[in-house]
Amino acid sequence: MTKNRPAGGQVRIIGGQWRSRRLPIQDLEGLRPTTDRVRETLFNWLAAELPGARVLDCFGGSGALCFEALSRYAAYAKVFELQRGAAMQLKANLVTLKCDTAEVVHGDTLTLLRQGTAAGFDIVFIDPPFRKGLAPDCMALLSEHGWLNEGALVYVETESELGQLVLSGDWQLIKDKQAGQVSYRLYQYHGA
């Protein structure tokens, strides 16, 4: 899916304190940064909630979502990334940005979520590799293991052919859009 990848292996931050900064990304199979158009819509949805928020990025990849959130004054971000090369690049990009309010954890997201957390998150990004069925499992583990604060906003990006996710009554669909082969949704969690 090269058409979504920025030219030259870079991702551009589109708003906030690091606006227009370009950061290198690893050229790894399955790495599909969220497009500028989709990110613009998402961060318009989240604008009022981001300052001071605790953010969890479940599938860090290029870092486009977590860096955008930090640029717009999220207080803290935790990023999970399975691929070692991508995790190392995310850490290097945090150094480049002189950002000490984020942590990159190399490991399998579902395994990490099963471990639980001492402090919940206000905003969560779920943009897993396509066609692996990870989004519903990820959402279940977030709620089962205390990752979500009451009223947390959870962004989910999936392949369009997946259709609607079947979720418990704790999840309320707030926004829903499609761009080409990508469906993206914003949920609010009410089960904490």
Rank of each mutant, 00 (worst) to 15 (best):
L90G: 02
L31V: 05
Q10P: 06
G180E: 11
F67N: 08
T34M: 05
Q181Y: 12
R54N: 09
V79D: 01
L142D: 02
K177Y: 08
Q172T: 07
D122N: 08
F59Q: 04
L112G: 01
A7T: 12
Q188F: 00
E159V: 13
L90R: 00
F80A: 02
A75V: 07
G61A: 08
G180M: 10
G30S: 11
G151C: 00
V11T: 03
L167P: 06
N44G: 11
A47W: 14
Y73F: 15
R21M: 08
A179T: 06
V166L: 13
M88T: 12
R72L: 04
N93S: 11
Q172I: 05
F130T: 06
R22A: 10
Y73P: 03
G163Q: 03
A179C: 08
G15Y: 10
Q89Y: 07
A74K: 00
C58T: 10
L31P: 00
Q181W: 12
L173W: 03
Q178K: 12
Y155L: 00
D122V: 05
L97W: 02
L94V: 08
P129C: 06
Q181R: 12
T101V: 09
G133F: 03
E144R: 13
R22V: 10
D137I: 07
R114K: 14
L70H: 01
C138A: 13
V182R: 01
K98W: 13
A152H: 02
P33I: 14
F67P: 04
L142H: 05
I25C: 00
G120C: 07
Q188H: 03
D176C: 07
D127T: 09
G163P: 06
K177L: 09
Y76Q: 13
E49L: 10
G30T: 06
F80I: 05
I25V: 08
S62R: 09
E68C: 09
V124P: 04
T96H: 14
T41E: 04
L162R: 15
Y187Q: 00
A135G: 07
K177E: 09
K3S: 13
A48R: 14
S160I: 11
T35C: 09
L82C: 11
L50W: 04
L65F: 02
L113S: 03
P33T: 13
F121W: 06
L46W: 03
S143C: 11
G9A: 15
R131T: 11
N149M: 07
P33K: 11
A192D: 12
